[in-house]
């Protein structure tokens, strides 16, 4: 079996009296797409925030390739290989499309202030490499970011392209694990389908992906494995079809009575 990339070990996070994430454990293996599903407020985004260091778990541990990352700052976790996108888009709106991706390389580039002030040959070389790589990443979305648009501000993009740009920025970190928080939220069916294919392409290129999704077509079409959450707890895990038909999952989504009528 493929190597475990992410190992989440019974993490818990409480806000006031609310257990947003409760004793949650799961693993993500290299080269797979795992979907995290669950009704609104079930703790999916909070799980992402715990993995990426925005919050520190009250208890439990998160391991990236056997190394504990719980308690590290977001920047450090990013440098160790976890990139993410946000449910509410968070682009650098007034910066150019290319610069958005280049910011994603900040942690891996080494030019210091003096280099940058003087544009030393070392800095220029690194910069040229970064720009080339950034263009390569933007090229993963064919036709969406033509070179003529690279210098335009991110906010000039359409909504769907902004979501794509956020993925591109996350890829700039050369992540061992890519977290996507509702990547097709707000897209029409055709756009969702295209993004779903792109996510599969990324997996085929070797990326490991954990995504939160509500869109059933995308979940069924893209995921290798699905984890369902409710009230901060894991209620089911397995192949997409299995989880979708799991009584506990149906109940979480439709309520007890809904589940009875459905069966």
């Amino acid at each position: 079996m493929a190597e475990v990339v992410l190992d989440v070990r019974s993490i818990t996070k409480t806000f006031g009296g609310l257990k947003a994430v409760n004793d949650l454990s799961f693993v993500v293996r290299e080269g797979e797409i795992v979907s995290l599903i669950g009704p609104n407020g079930s703790g999916k985004t909070t799980t992402f925030n715990l993995i990426t260091g925005l919050y520190e778990p009250d208890s439990g541990d998160v391991l990236l390739k056997d190394e504990s990352i719980a308690g590290l700052k977001p920047g450090q976790i990013y440098e160790r290989g976890i990139s993410r996108t946000f449910q509410m888009l968070r682009l650098f709106s007034n910066m150019s499309i290319l610069d958005n991706v280049l910011v994603g390389m900040h942690g891996r580039t080494r030019a210091n202030v003096i280099d940058c002030m003087l544009h030393t040959p070392r800095m220029r070389r690194e910069e040229a490499e970064s720009v080339a790589r950034a263009k390569e990443i933007l090229g993963l979305f064919p036709g969406r970011f033509p070179a003529s648009r690279h210098s335009q501000p991110a906010l000039s993009l359409s909504y769907a392209n902004r979501r794509r740009l956020e993925i591109a920025r996350a890829l700039a970190g050369e992540p061992a694990l890519l977290l996507l928080d509702e990547p097709v939220a707000g897209m029409n069916p055709a756009e969702s389908l295209e993004v779903m294919r792109q996510i599969r392409d990324l997996r085929d290129m070797g990326y490991t992906i954990l995504m939160i999704e509500h869109d059933m077509n995308v979940i069924m079409g893209a995921s290798d494995r699905v984890i369902a959450m409710d009230h901060g707890e894991k209620i089911a895990e397995g192949a997409p079809q299995e989880v979708a038909n799991d009584p506990a999952v149906v109940e979480a989504y439709l309520g007890k009575r809904g589940a009875d009528t459905a069966s």
Partner: peptide, 11 residues
Amino acid sequence: EDEIASHHSGV
């Protein structure tokens, strides 16, 4: 532009 996003991008 966005402190949280920049922090999550390694800044």
